Amino acid sequence: MKFWISSILYIFLCTTQAQEIYFPSDTLWESRSPETFDLNLDAAIDFAKKNEYSGARDLEQAILKGFEREPFHKIMGPVKRRGGPAGMILKNGYKIAEWGDVQRVDMTFSVTKSFLSTTALIAIQKNIIHNLNDTVSGYVWDGTFDGPHNSKITWKHLLQQNSDWSGELWDSHDWADRPSANGNIDSWRSRKLNEPGTFFKYNDVRVNVLAYSLLQVFRKPLPAVLKENIMDPIGASHSWRWFGYDNSWTTIDGYKMQSVSGGGHSGGGMFINTEDMARFGLLFLSNGVWNDQKLLEKDLIKEALIPSTSNTNYGYMWWLNAKGDRHMDGLDHDLFYAAGFGGNFIIIDQKQKLVIVTRWLEPSKLEDFLNLIYKNQ
Score class of each variant (00 low, 15 high):
residue 109 F to V: 08
residue 64 L to P: 01
residue 251 T to N: 14
residue 155 W to H: 04
residue 259 S to I: 05
residue 327 H to I: 04
residue 252 I to Q: 02
residue 241 R to W: 00
residue 252 I to R: 01
residue 354 L to A: 11
residue 249 W to G: 03
residue 90 L to N: 11
residue 212 Y to G: 04
residue 337 Y to G: 00
residue 104 R to C: 02
residue 27 T to W: 12
residue 130 H to W: 01
residue 280 F to I: 09
residue 328 M to Q: 09
residue 82 R to V: 06
residue 40 N to K: 14
residue 314 Y to S: 02
residue 143 G to K: 03
residue 134 D to F: 04
residue 244 G to R: 01
residue 82 R to F: 04
residue 171 D to R: 07
residue 209 V to E: 11
residue 158 L to E: 09
residue 220 K to G: 00
residue 33 S to E: 15
residue 165 W to Y: 12
residue 42 D to K: 07
residue 279 R to H: 07
residue 313 N to L: 08
residue 250 T to R: 04
residue 198 T to C: 13
residue 23 F to W: 10
residue 91 K to G: 06
residue 369 F to H: 03
residue 224 A to P: 00
residue 75 I to N: 06
residue 318 W to P: 02
residue 210 L to N: 03
residue 343 G to Q: 10
residue 233 P to G: 02
residue 253 D to T: 03
residue 235 G to F: 02
residue 208 N to S: 14
residue 180 S to L: 13
residue 329 D to K: 08
residue 1 M to S: 13
residue 107 M to T: 13
residue 321 N to W: 01
residue 132 L to M: 05
residue 23 F to C: 04
residue 39 L to D: 13
residue 51 N to Y: 08
residue 167 G to Y: 07
residue 115 F to R: 10
residue 145 F to Y: 15
residue 84 G to R: 03
residue 215 L to A: 03
residue 352 Q to V: 02
residue 309 T to A: 15
residue 371 N to I: 02
residue 135 T to R: 15
residue 139 Y to R: 07
residue 251 T to E: 15
residue 259 S to E: 06
residue 223 P to I: 02
residue 320 L to P: 10
residue 28 L to H: 14
residue 73 H to R: 07
residue 273 N to T: 09
residue 103 Q to P: 00
residue 243 F to W: 14
residue 34 P to T: 13
residue 323 K to M: 05
residue 38 D to T: 11
residue 231 M to R: 00
residue 16 T to E: 13
residue 27 T to Q: 15
residue 19 Q to S: 15
residue 118 T to I: 07
residue 134 D to N: 07
residue 114 S to V: 03
residue 168 E to H: 05
residue 183 G to Y: 10
residue 21 I to N: 11
residue 346 I to H: 08
residue 224 A to F: 06
residue 332 D to S: 15
residue 2 K to R: 11
residue 138 G to V: 01
residue 170 W to P: 03
residue 188 W to Q: 09
residue 125 Q to W: 02
residue 249 W to I: 11
residue 361 L to W: 08
residue 49 K to L: 15
residue 268 G to P: 11
residue 92 N to G: 12
residue 280 F to W: 05
residue 292 D to T: 14
residue 75 I to A: 07
residue 29 W to H: 15
residue 167 G to A: 10
residue 97 A to H: 06
residue 11 I to G: 11
residue 23 F to N: 04
residue 55 G to Q: 04
residue 175 W to C: 03
residue 14 C to E: 12
residue 259 S to K: 01
residue 179 P to D: 09
residue 158 L to I: 09
residue 168 E to G: 00
residue 320 L to N: 06
residue 229 N to L: 01
residue 135 T to P: 02
residue 42 D to P: 00
residue 299 D to N: 13
residue 311 N to T: 01
residue 25 S to K: 07
residue 76 M to I: 07
residue 302 K to S: 13
residue 83 G to P: 05
residue 326 R to W: 12
residue 293 Q to C: 02
residue 323 K to Q: 13
residue 334 D to H: 15
residue 34 P to N: 12
residue 86 A to T: 13
residue 347 I to Q: 04
residue 62 A to W: 09
residue 325 D to I: 05
residue 54 S to P: 00
residue 92 N to L: 07
residue 300 L to P: 03
residue 26 D to E: 14
residue 182 N to C: 08
residue 66 G to F: 02
residue 191 R to H: 12
residue 53 Y to W: 12
residue 322 A to F: 10
residue 348 I to F: 04
residue 119 T to D: 02
residue 214 L to W: 00
residue 11 I to R: 12
residue 200 F to A: 10
residue 295 L to D: 11
residue 347 I to E: 06
residue 63 I to W: 01
residue 351 K to W: 06
residue 317 M to P: 00
residue 180 S to C: 09
residue 79 V to M: 08
